[in-house]
Design a protein around this nucleic acid. Sequence first.
DNA 1: GCCAACGTTGGC
DNA 2: GCCAACGTTGGC
Length: 172
Amino acid sequence: MELKQGIEKSEKRKFWLMKSEPNCFSLNDLKNRPDGTEPWDGVRNYQARNLLRDDIKCGDGVLFYHSNISKPAIVGLARVVREGYPDYTALDPESDHFDPRASATNPLWYMVDVQYLASLEVPITRQDLARHPVLAGMGVLKKGNRLSVQPVTQEQWQAVLQVAGLEDPFGL
DNA sequence: GCCAACGTTGGC
DNA sequence: GCCAACGTTGGC
């Protein structure tokens, strides 16, 4: 399977769920980028910033989640291809994500690059998640959880792939 | 469009 | 350091 090209097994691999409003940036938008790769910019929350800066590593798996629509759902898979580096949109006065407190010496905000891997044939909705014995525990279902980047367990990752009927791109 | 939950700001 | 006010997120 071509997905597997360049993807190594790793004991240390971690898994994340990243939210995006598809009206702003959708899974298809990611897919259509050169190399299917895009900086995950504009995160302006300290808890998420710390994850982007410190914890999210090259090769980690990403569940791509569409939020703020009538049927919020996990819609696809991606992986991290560049680790935490300064989010330069914070330095750009023209950017929607400009932050006057950020500077070259104190970047304040961080991002990673993610690369498209696959689209789910059928999105996994919140109702689907809630009804699944493993996926019901996902943080994204918790009321009031606004964290746009959040950890997912390997069990949850594998359960998503099983539900989606996809071969695991990491060979798990 | 509504509104609950949460994070941030800023006066004191 | 407290906390009220405000802005944002995001499901419904």
